[in-house]
Design a protein around this nucleic acid. Structure first.
Lengths: 158, 158
DNA sequence: TTTAAATAAAGAATATTATCCTTTTTATAG
DNA sequence: CTATAAAAAGGATAATATTCTTTATTTAAA
């Protein structure tokens, strides 16, 4: 049964979203509790699926991936089997970190992280445009990014 | 001085990107080393900024945020001071998790995570369209998402 | 080659933490 | 009020992170 989140749970999620390496002790102190209930609540949040995983966030630029690009795509044919194949291919490209089927002026929106403009062009020419039934393709190249986070503001949810 | 990453460093980043809660012991075993060099390498990767932070990834749907939307925006006026104000306002909206200045058919591309269509409309009507000098606004609503990750494929970098 | 210096790994010791268990408190329903 | 269930506290223990010292490996100079 889906257990509802109380204020402490929400605070825990907010804290762990920012920094998942905090010790239960330090969190317990911040919330004015002892470590055991904090520990147990976190385990429950994990088990019930509110927390999916814990990951290290890397600095893409430092790793040599300096360019983010969004690509809107329309397809010419829309058979189900083709769509599935298309998505499968797209998802296998390591440059693609997001692939959304969308409504609006495109069928798909991709988010890519690549080394530079050259790598972007290589992707377009030697990967994307090789896919059949490709219609309109429109790229938006990120010139600068003022916000980019996974962190969800929980104050509006609970 | 910028230290280059060797194969072990790359493997460490790949591992921690997937799961940052692995113990150094378990990683050491996987890589056939003892714990101390693993520990020290991770600390170095943190200190040198390859690893920015460790975070918990939440299940947005479970939290009640079921809709992802991308919004392309063009502005009518482009004075520097206005752009700055615009970006500042946009970034303060909790719905907005990404804001990119882009080249192409739009000036800005936003990524939003909201409860549902209603919350999306509320955002448009009572937040976005209140900003002055707004030109064209085009939304792409995610119908389904086949890939959405932060995980970078490191095999192509080093 | 040989040797010295620097770098990385191994191994062991210690301090912290996570984790578990029991007791106490708090909240709730009858 | 009392009985029951749920949550928190507190303490004990096992596991882990972290530090330090020693050993091995690599690198560069002689």
């Amino acid at each position: 049964m889906p257990h509802t989140l109380d204020k402490i749970d929400t605070q825990l999620l907010a804290i762990l979203q920012k920094n998942s390496n905090r010790t239960t002790k330090s969190i317990a102190e911040e919330l004015g509790m002892s470590t055991s209930p904090i520990f147990e609540r976190i385990k429950k949040l994990e088990k019930e699926g509110y927390i999916e995983k814990y990951v290290a966030v890397l600095n893409n630029k430092k790793i040599g991936l300096k360019l983010t690009v969004f690509i809107g795509i329309t397809l010419q044919g829309h058979t189900r089997s083709y769509l599935e194949k298309f998505v499968k291919e797209i998802n296998n490209f390591p440059e693609v970190i997001e692939c959304h089927r969308v409504s609006g002026n495109f069928d798909y929106l991709l988010k890519l992280v690549v080394e530079d403009i050259e790598a972007y062009e290589t992707f377009i020419i030697s990967k994307l445009t090789l896919l059949p039934y490709l219609g309109n393709v429109q790229s938006l190249i990120a010139l600068s990014t003022s916000k980019e986070t996974n962190e969800i503001d929980l104050s509006r949810v609970l």
